[in-house]
Design a protein around this nucleic acid. Structure first.
Lengths: 356, 356
DNA sequence: GCGGAGATGCGAAACGTTTCGCAAAACCGT
DNA sequence: ACGGTTTTGCGAAACGTTTCGCATCTCCGC
């Protein structure tokens, strides 16, 4: 590898001049500059990131902290990462993928005291996330994909849950539904104050109330079995329900099976909405599910951009915040409610019996 | 941040002694060592990775090169990455997530000339992958998840396609199937000599021949529509087919729809196998599909371990290679073939008519 | 008490940059 | 032709490590 000194010798100038010429740090006579650039090109010179970082205190490396799979890693998380990595590359930065051990704050401490990263990007943020306190206390630049309860001072990109819920509810209300149920993540996820769980739940409730709908919600494990059980329970307790939004892919599988077992059909007897799930997943269902698709890659990109902006400004710039709504992708699982919801139920035993 | 010098002052020794004591590079008297360690602990000293890397020429940073989504990124790729990141962390290394631009070799050159990474981990390897030539020519340590056509000299972890195909075929033959079809990825993926496409195809063919099965394969786009069309075409051309292996999730969706449209049922009329797809995906189908689940996370881990071993040995150690078979996860989509396959077809029009 | 071997610690150089004060050169108006 | 200003380039120091030759100190047998 050729160094700045090699270039300097070849161009007959001092090392510092080469540095200035190549970085534009201070004016260099046009002729000299051209000579230097040519020498650099001939030698295939590339600056050494470590040496540069050592003195300038900027490595242009960002860390993406990702927790050990909460409920199993999905496409959404993948898209955060790829979006972030792409944005970082475009902006001349590198992205470090840092798994969080059992102790997230400890992992953060280990990572940030090495002088390796300029800033940190947080994902899977909880409303009272302890990591933000650590980062703030140690004055480590960071941004969030997601947000805490009071994220005013912190740059973040998150889903616009209010707008998303509003879009979903008005879609359903527009079709004529009057009763809406919502299957959220597990009670554990809620207890952990995991942002999307809490916020989606709250905003759906609020939007439903606003629209004058009857609203039922339930927190269940993200498995097909639980989805099935939850659905049976739901219909028993609220026979008038005609629309259901589900946040977990796996639970949706159970719901669909339970619907079929009843002899019902989607969307004739039930409108099903998949919330916060990628289009690729929705396509795997039959019929194709109407989905509220999170802008995952975009959030990853935004997070990185914000973090870099913040670093560039030296922390003076005010924090930036963006809420992006999910995209409502119409599938074949939503339609008008049946005329008389209570008349749906009769076929249960026959149809279930027909299929082993 | 406290530096080596701070520790030295506090412990009343020279900087070089601290370095030796902390790294065990050379013997240091027990008493001195204890004093130094205590001083370091009190100051919360952590070595600066950049300074260390600058002189030692080892950064303990590995790069995971990931291509821009070939056919859309899936869970498999995510698991490579998380497995690799976790293994790296456990072994005291860091993992850089590097997207490949339009020109993979150029991206590699840019990345590797910065002095930032010790080695590179390649994924989505094609049989004649140009990246390996570049890396070998420039003597950059690397390992592959996947493998080229002749990977003898290169450390790699890959799926054991032969064992996988053998397991699948013997599962099917054991159930009594005599005719097997296989829907592979697109012709494009084959033309690009993408490893899994080529190898899975070849090994399935070979295993089927070995078992004396009639074998048909087809390359199609990874979409539900194509899956459906391919299936209709398959049954028309080969009415005796009773078992089908599909490599694409999306195509499987189409197949399932086409099967249903015919009035057939899985596994009664057709045994369906999902190949190289994660269990999470298989669970989203109904019935739950029998799957050959790739050991993605493990391959990621292995790749990292091999790369690190190689770096530690200074390149003297012989390359390591591991082939891991997919796990056959039994679902409810495989069973014995119907007694008379040709008698399946009659119900097509009626049943299709019944559902809009 | 002395010479030599081992053990122990020191100081300086090096890694490849950026930064900054300062000197030399060039240019200007008068 | 001359003082002052601007332009241009130089050299040295610094960033925080590792590495390595060398000095000192201790200990031992004779």
């Amino acid at each position: 590898m050729s160094s700045l000194r090699d270039v300097a010798e070849r161009a007959n100038v001092a090392v510092s001049t080469v540095s200035a010429a190549l970085n534009g740090t201070r004016p260099v006579a046009a002729a000299t500059k051209r000579r230097i650039e040519q020498a650099a090109a001939e030698l295939g010179y590339r600056p050494n990131v470590l040496a540069r970082g050592l003195v300038s205190k900027r490595t242009r490396i960002l860390a993406l902290l990702f927790p050990t799979p909460h409920s199993g890693f999905g496409l959404t998380e993948m898209q955060f990462a790829t979006g972030a990595a792409e944005a970082a590359a475009e902006l001349g930065h590198h992205l470090l993928l840092s798994p969080e051990s059992h102790d997230p704050v400890d992992a953060l401490r280990h990572l940030t005291t090495l002088g390796l990263v300029d800033g940190v990007l947080l994902m899977e943020v909880r409303l009272d996330d302890e990591r933000t306190a650590f980062l703030a206390a140690n004055e480590i630049p960071f941004a969030m994909i997601g947000r805490t309860r009071r994220p005013d001072g912190i740059s973040h990109a998150d889903i616009d849950f209010a707008a998303t819920a509003e879009a979903a509810v008005s879609h359903l209300a527009g079709l004529g539904h009057r009763t809406l149920a919502f299957f959220n993540h597990t009670p554990d996820a809620y207890a952990a104050q995991y942002g999307p769980t809490v916020r989606t739940g709250a905003e759906f409730a609020s939007a439903a109330r606003q629209a004058g709908l009857t609203y039922i919600d339930e927190f269940r494990a993200d498995t097909a079995e639980e989805g099935r059980a939850a659905f049976d329970h739901l219909v028993a307790a609220h026979p008038g329900v005609t629309a259901l939004a589900v946040i977990s892919d796996q639970a949706a599988v159970g719901v669909i099976a339970a619907v079929a077992a009843r002899g019902w059909s989607i969307p004739r007897d039930l409108t099903l909405l998949l919330v916060l799930s990628s289009g690729r997943v929705a396509e795997m269902f039959h019929p194709r599910l109407t989905t509220l698709e999170p802008p995952s890659a975009e959030l990853g990109r935004l997070g990185v951009r914000m973090l870099i902006d913040r670093l560039a400004s030296g922390g003076d710039a005010p924090p930036e915040q963006r809420l992006v709504p999910c995209r409502l992708v119409l599938g074949d699982s939503s339609g008008p409610p049946p005329a008389d919801p209570r008349a749906r139920g009769g076929r249960t035993s026959e149809t279930t019996g027909a299929r082993p």
